[in-house]
Amino acid sequence: MATILSVSGSPSATSRTARLLRHLDTRLAAQGHEVIPLDVRTLPPQALLHADFGHPAIAEATAQFAAADGVVIGTPVYKAAYSGLLKSLLDLLPQYALTGKTVLPLATGGTTAHVLAIDYALRPVLASMGPTHITPGWFTLDKDISVGDDGALTLAPGAAEGLAQVTDQFSAALGGRPRALLAATG
């Protein structure tokens, strides 16, 4: 199957965005894909802020993008746009780093007022990087994501259904085997 790079653009160590991505990673792996997680917040801040293209961690992230068949990009929405942390990484990638790739954009946020951030802020940047296909994205409200004391993620039914649908569309675009809509998302 395909190799997927799953990128979290959240600056928070307890991020709902990152937890949501890792939840989707499990679904994609169960469909036969190799999933490689990348939390941008773990990259060296100095390398990101000073645009150190030659830093080993930035070079490794760039190589991970190059090796991937598909890329899931997840970000919290701040001020109606994707995170600055994600932007700092995207700015360091080659201009056409997504050439030949299928991309799934995802966002989380506190209000439905930010629902269009995927299409008006993130999608144009991703499109400028040359992907073959950007599948329909999904915005999940923070209130629809809960994390139990054991770290288990629970999604509101509507969010779970929508995420399953866009994840399965992305997987199908990569040649995956989508399962029943809610079988893996609970």
Rank of each mutant, 00 (worst) to 15 (best):
A159P: 03
G100Q: 08
T102E: 06
H55Y: 13
D69W: 06
P124Q: 10
A183C: 00
A2P: 09
T111G: 02
H50D: 11
G74Y: 13
A113S: 10
P131T: 10
A117L: 04
T154G: 00
G130W: 07
D142T: 02
P45K: 04
D39V: 05
T140D: 00
L5Q: 03
A13M: 03
R177D: 10
A156I: 01
P45I: 05
E60S: 14
S146Q: 12
A121K: 03
L89C: 11
T26W: 07
T3A: 04
A67W: 13
L20G: 04
S15T: 04
S6D: 07
V77T: 15
G54E: 15
L181V: 15
E60L: 14
T17E: 01
F170L: 05
V72G: 06
K87Y: 05
S6M: 07
S12W: 01
G100S: 07
L28M: 12
L181F: 05
A152R: 11
M129K: 10
A59N: 06
R177H: 11
E34H: 09
L122M: 09
P94K: 12
Y96I: 02
L48H: 06
K87R: 14
L141E: 07
T132V: 03
T14G: 12
L182I: 02
I134W: 00
S15L: 03
S146T: 15
G84F: 11
I36S: 09
A152L: 07
I58Q: 12
S15M: 02
A13T: 11
L163M: 10
V40F: 05
L38H: 05
A2Y: 05
H33K: 01
I73R: 01
I145E: 10
P45R: 08
G151I: 02
R16D: 04
T112V: 08
Y96A: 14
G186T: 05
A107W: 01
L153F: 08
F53V: 15
A127C: 02
L116V: 14
T102A: 14
L155K: 09
L85N: 13
M1S: 11
T17H: 01
D144L: 01
T135D: 04
R123N: 12
A63C: 08
Q165G: 00
A164S: 15
H114D: 08
F170D: 05
T75P: 13
Q169P: 00
L48F: 08
A183E: 15
L155A: 03
F139K: 00
Q95H: 13
D91E: 15
A29I: 05
L106H: 03
Q95E: 15
G9T: 01
L163W: 04
S83F: 03
D91L: 13
L20E: 01
A113F: 10
L86T: 06
F53T: 15
L90T: 02
R22P: 00
P124Y: 07
I73G: 03
I73P: 06
V115H: 12
A184G: 13
A127P: 01
P45H: 03
V40N: 05
I145V: 11
E34D: 12
A51Q: 15
H55A: 15
F139W: 02
V147T: 12
H33E: 09
L104E: 13
A164N: 14
L49W: 06
G162P: 03
P131A: 10
L106C: 07
A184V: 04
P94G: 12
P76M: 14
P37K: 15
A121C: 08
Q46M: 09
A80R: 13
G9W: 04
Q95F: 09
L21T: 04
A57W: 10
A81W: 06
